[in-house]
């Protein structure tokens, strides 16, 4: 019987740190897409709560504890990010949801990076057209947007952001983020000396 081992798309490439910012990889055990069928949102919430989780967040928001985070991920779609592998749903969607929502395992599909530090926002602003100002894109907010021509989902954390990109471009996204970190840090140093 075979036993395959998983491999992160950013294996061995992170963390990356330059003055004022740290980019690191975050590993969620399971990521599940939940798309409630028509009229089933309440039932989905009941079911989620029965599993010890939070209800689905509002549009553009995050809900639930860190270990079992629920994020809004677009029109009619939510992602359950579970720190423990296979905690809520295994790769085979929970049959209890059959009539309630379209469930789809996305654990492998998304790669999550965390960008933190004093200049994290400035770094992200080099790549991302979203209005990232703290007064606009607040803690608990989540957005699907673009990062250097790639689709991303991002939300604000206490000291920075978590950034989700699809697996096939994870290395490109990482390279662009680390490049922006270099650029911002170097320019900041320049500003201090001149």
């Amino acid at each position: 019987m075979v036993d395959l081992t998983g491999l992160s798309a950013l294996e061995g490439l992170l963390p990356y740190e330059v003055d004022g910012a740290v980019l690191s990889a975050v590993s969620y055990g399971a990521i599940t897409s939940i798309m409630p069928f028509r009229g089933q949102k309440t039932a989905v919430n009941v079911r989620l709560k029965a599993d010890g989780g939070a209800a689905l967040p509002r549009i553009g928001r995050v809900s639930g504890p860190v270990a079992k985070r629920l994020i809004w991920a677009g029109r009619g779609q939510y992602l359950l990010l579970d720190l423990r592998r296979g905690a809520a749903f295994d790769t085979t969607p929970d049959p209890a949801f059959d009539e309630l929502a379209a469930l789809s395992d996305q654990t492998s599909a998304w790669v999550v990076m965390r960008l933190e530090g004093a200049r994290a926002q400035e770094v992200l602003a080099r790549l991302c057209p979203l209005d990232l100002r703290a007064g606009v894109f607040k803690r608990g907010h989540v957005a699907r947007t673009e990062l250097a021509h790639m689709a991303v989902i991002l939300w604000r954390r206490p000291k920075g952001f978590e950034i989700m990109v699809v697996r096939s471009v994870a290395q490109v996204a990482m390279r662009r983020l680390s490049g922006a970190m270099d650029s911002v840090a170097a320019q900041a140093v320049l500003g201090e000396i001149s």
Partner: peptide
Amino acid sequence: LDVMFTSVTEQWA
């Protein structure tokens, strides 16, 4: 129509 799409291109090798 009540139908949902999820791209799973990236999920499955």
